[in-house]
Each structure stands twice: as structure tokens, then as C-alpha cells.
């Protein structure tokens, strides 16, 4: 939309703007409506600078056809970005009857994968290895030593024999399953 903006400053134009600043005060930061240095500055998505009171009045003047006063791109109150300079001593300036300048929007950085709640760290979380890998999942579980789960029970205890039994049952289930896979 801003590509057809005749006044959008390209890199070269920016350079001439710099020289303009030196010769003509701070004309580069003039509001496009009142032609004065922009106060309570906001910038539109198409890159044009305005005083917020000026732009607000422009938008109020024609509520059903809100276009940028410079390039006529579509604009709206929500799509303006306020500009906060460092030496902004007029921050306490009550903007009279006007609604306040739109707030700056700060979005959270995006999460690059992973579910923070599960504590899997940076590794990808995978729900399934697919049907063929099902028995290996059984074997793999017996080799997990350092994952915080309680280790295998001591030999001789009833729990040990139960686990042995269960282990054998699952082993046989796994063997049958693989056998079935080979036949099928």
C-alpha cells in the first residue's frame, strides 16, 4: 500500500532530508497537518508523521472515510504508533478533551517450539513414534537410567518379581506384535 506513496522517503531522499534539517530547522519532523513541529507525535503505518491532536481531528472530520492526509492510504486510530522522544518534558500535558494518544503495543517474543509447562527443555516434544516403533518404546524404557524416575526394584523383593513378570508379559506381547507385523 505504501509502495505508491509518492512521499515515502527512500534512502536517498532520507539523505536530502538530513541536509534539509541543517538548513531549515527541524522541518523534517513537522506535522503534515499543522506544518509545525509535531507534538504528541504519532506515525501512521504508511510512515507519515502527525501531531496526535491534528490526526485525531482529521479522523473525526470524516469518520467513514479514514485516509492518510498525505498518501490516502487507509489509516485508523488503532494503527498509529506513538513516538516517545527522550526529552519529553510535556508528558504530563493533559491532552485536553482529546482521547489519549494510542498506547504503544508491546507483543511478547514468540516461542520457538516446546511447551514450557512440560519442562522438556529445548528438545522437541514428540507425541508418537509411529506404530512400528511401539515395541522399541518398551525396550527403551528399560534403558532410561537418568530420567528421574525410580530405578528398577532390588532383586528378591516381591516388587522385583512382579516387575520381572510384567516385563516378560510385555516382552511376549512385543514379540507377538512383531511376529504379527511380519506376517501381515
Amino acid at each position: 500500500m505504501s509502495s505508491d506513496t509518492p512521499t515515502s522517503p527512500g534512502p536517498t531522499e532520507g539523505a536530502t532530508g538530513g541536509s534539509e534539517v541543517s538548513t531549515d530547522g527541524n522541518a523534517f519532523f513537522e506535522c503534515n497537518i499543522c506544518l509545525d513541529t509535531a507534538r504528541d507525535a504519532v506515525v501512521s503505518m504508511c510512515g507519515h508523521l502527525f501531531c496526535w491532536p491534528c490526526l485525531h481531528q482529521w479522523l473525526e472530520t470524516r469518520p467513514n472515510r479514514q485516509t492518510c492526509p498525505v498518501c490516502k492510504a487507509g489509516i485508523s486510530k488503532d494503527k498509529c504508533i506513538p513516538i516517545y522522544g527522550r526529552g519529553a518534558s510535556d508528558q504530563q500535558d493533559p491532552r485536553e478533551k482529546l482521547p489519549p494518544r494510542p498506547q504503544g503495543q508491546r507483543s511478547e517474543p514468540e516461542n520457538n517450539g516446546g511447551f514450557p509447562g512440560f519442562g522438556f527443555g529445548d528438545g522437541g516434544f514428540q507425541m508418537s513414534f509411529g506404530i512400528g516403533a511401539f515395541p522399541f518404546g518398551i525396550f527403551a524404557s528399560t534403558f532410561n537410567f537418568n530420567d528421574g524416575r525410580p530405578g528398577p526394584a532390588q532383586p528378591g523383593t516381591p516388587q522385583h518379581s512382579e516387575e520381572q513378570f510384567l516385563s516378560k508379559v510385555f516382552l511376549w506381547v512385543a514379540i507377538l506384535f512383531m511376529f504379527w507385523l511380519l506376517i501381515a
Binding site: N32, I33, L35, H48, C54, R65, C68, P69, V70, K72
Partner: peptide, 9 residues
């Protein structure tokens, strides 16, 4: 008329 824009001079 209707195509007036405030940045025009």
C-alpha cells in the same frame, strides 16, 4: 471537495 486531504496546501 471530497478528495481533499489535510496535508494539501
Amino acid at each position: 471537495k471530497d478528495q481533499w486531504a489535510a496535508a494539501m496546501t
